[in-house]
């Protein structure tokens, strides 16, 4: 046992730490930035009728069904240095290509459908008559959203955010296509694992990062279960 797994196995190298820190940073930024958009989109899809709703729904869910490489390539064409919006964004100082911010954009786009789905379900589960009650008590739509819908959907919103966060940690295809695989800038855990498996003697590093990835993903899932369970108990729906 001692020979097979030396104690040093559990020590992460600086390069591995960099990949983990970068992954966490990218996933956190991707989740937090997409959160308000996710909430508004989910609420609009759950509660509002507007022209083009089916189209919006389709576009939101597209990254879920497209090959990630295709999503990455579309991002490259839209936001890349020579993309449709890239040059104008560069003029106001926003550059995504080969930057960690670009990786965050790719992760946000890939995680968005998961986030919206969870949130939409929890908005839809709210009894519409609570909206009516709130409005007859004098709260307009915005106050009703803030005081009734948002707190009641909070468990779903948190679960959606956790799902998007976990998805961002594991995102590979879109990120590597859009912003490549640059250690210290765009090399996330997944990309690092891929790189390590491509070099001789990289298996140990790959294994360590795999364990880290499993721990983070598993914690996220457990956290989302606990949040849902507690919310249901608080609202008296626990079985």
């Amino acid at each position: 046992m001692q020979d097979f797994l030396p104690a040093a196995f559990f020590e992460l190298s600086p390069a591995e730490w960099t990949a983990i820190r970068l992954s966490l940073r990218i996933a956190t930024v991707a989740t937090l930035v997409s959160l308000p958009f996710g909430i508004v989109t989910a609420y609009a899809l759950a509660r509002c009728q507007f022209p083009g709703k089916t189209l919006v729904n389709g576009v939101v869910h597209l990254p879920l069904v497209l090959p990630p490489v295709v999503t990455g390539f579309v991002l490259l064409m839209l936001l890349g240095r020579k993309g449709v919006f890239g040059p104008s964004l560069a003029q106001i100082g926003i550059v995504f290509s080969f930057r960690w911010t670009g990786a965050a954009v790719a992760c946000a786009v890939m995680g968005f459908p998961l986030m919206v789905r969870a949130m939409r379900l929890s908005f839809e589960a709210i009894d519409r008559r609570l909206d009516m009650a709130s409005q007859t008590l004098g709260a307009n739509r915005i106050w009703t959203f803030l005081l009734v819908n948002l707190p009641l959907a909070a468990p779903g919103i948190i679960v959606g955010a956790i799902l998007a966060f976990a998805k961002a940690l594991g995102e590979f295809g879109a990120t590597i296509t859009f912003v490549s695989n640059i250690p210290g800038e765009t090399q996330t855990i997944s990309a690092a694992i891929y790189s390590y498996t491509q070099v001789p003697g990289g298996d140990e590093s790959a294994m360590r990062l795999t364990i880290v990835a499993v721990i983070i993903a598993f914690s996220a899932l457990v956290a989302s279960e606990i949040i849902q369970w507690r919310a249901q108990k608080r609202l008296g729906r626990a079985e």
Binding site: M132, A133, Q135, T136, A139, N140, T144
Partner: peptide, 8 residues
């Protein structure tokens, strides 16, 4: 609704 001030 929210400006009618009718309790329901």
């Amino acid at each position: 609704v929210s400006r009618r001030r009718v309790g329901l």
